[in-house]
Nucleic acid binder design. Sequence first.
DNA 1: CCGGATTTGTACGTATGTATT
DNA 2: GAATACATACGTACAAATCCG
Lengths: 132, 132
Amino acid sequence: MPSSDVPLYLQLAATLRERIQEGVYSAGKPIPFEAAICDEHGVGRMTVRRALAVLREEGLIRTKRGGASVVRAECVRETLILQQNDRLIGRMPSREERSELSLDVGVPLLEVHRVDGTTERFAADRVEIIGH
Amino acid sequence: MPSSDVPLYLQLAATLRERIQEGVYSAGKPIPFEAAICDEHGVGRMTVRRALAVLREEGLIRTKRGGASVVRAECVRETLILQQNDRLIGRMPSREERSELSLDVGVPLLEVHRVDGTTERFAADRVEIIGH
DNA sequence: CCGGATTTGTACGTATGTATT
DNA sequence: GAATACATACGTACAAATCCG
């Protein structure tokens, strides 16, 4: 549906995103192989891979080498209280922080600076912050 | 000096990230052209582009078509108070939200659900949340 | 449990489009 | 308007991880 001057990989990403949100591809289950997507949409593998990268960076899918991409299930979020004068910022983690905290691609980092000077870091998809 | 079984594009990304953090490439100023990076490191253009994509997704650089990538300057953050029982979650924005809120690639979204049922969304690089 | 087939990841090349300088 | 440099999109080949019989 998007106008045709939108790059192919974005049009494809939009189509796949829709299918995820409508449950055609459901949470926890794999989406079709790259080759199948190439065939279905008549595009090259690079275009498919870029489209999947978009969805990965949006946190919608997770990809393992050698296996199909899987629709990410919504995590159960731990509730976290932000105490008075605690400061919080959100940002993307570096590669190192990603492996330290076992973060998937497309998951931001929440950094809480406590009044006492300590800092804690959380995977944004596993916590919900609540005002005290 | 990462071990040599680390993908080329990640080794290159690490090198460039170091230079940014050490100020060799300084905030607000452009880094070398893709072609120059190819030459300096003896790698193909795709490898350079993937390395730059890594840095972009980490929020370290911004790329304009037709011009060199620029080192992102740290934004001045507006302070925002999280009221009692306000709930906050962090996630990556969709492409649509990115254009609505003028978010750069690599900038997460902070979503605040107020007690009164309203929801506000903020660019994570432009706010700092503080507990009330 | 092993091994081969399958599938994704990396890396390169080429050509063309398009925005910036 | 021309040159430059990034963006898209096709292709190939091989490596590495997973899956399955």
